[in-house]
């Protein structure tokens, strides 16, 4: 399932996938895979993404 919340949060911060990847110290392809829903990140990476996008885990990764 696509992670549209993460994609929109990244767009709101005006960050490219490459820039977010650098902030999280991962490859651009990993960010792309998470947004496409092709890869489930570990909690450590989720936290790194949340910190980079100033969001909480609930806001980005919790499906209510």
């Amino acid at each position: 399932m696509k992670n549209l919340k993460m994609k929109s949060a990244r767009a709101a911060k005006d960050l490219s996938q490459e820039q977010l990847a650098k902030l999280c110290d991962v490859s651009r392809q990993t960010i792309s895979a998470i947004e496409k829903g092709d890869y489930n990140p570990t909690i450590n990476l989720c936290i790194a993404i949340c910190r980079a996008l100033d969001k909480t885990l609930d806001e980005l990764f919790w499906d209510a």
């Binding site: 110290d25 490859s27 392809q29 990993t30 895979a33 990140p41 570990t42 450590n44």
Partner: peptide
Amino acid sequence: RSESRHYDEMQ
């Protein structure tokens, strides 16, 4: 040696 090159968790 001069760079911290690594593979991320997905890689």
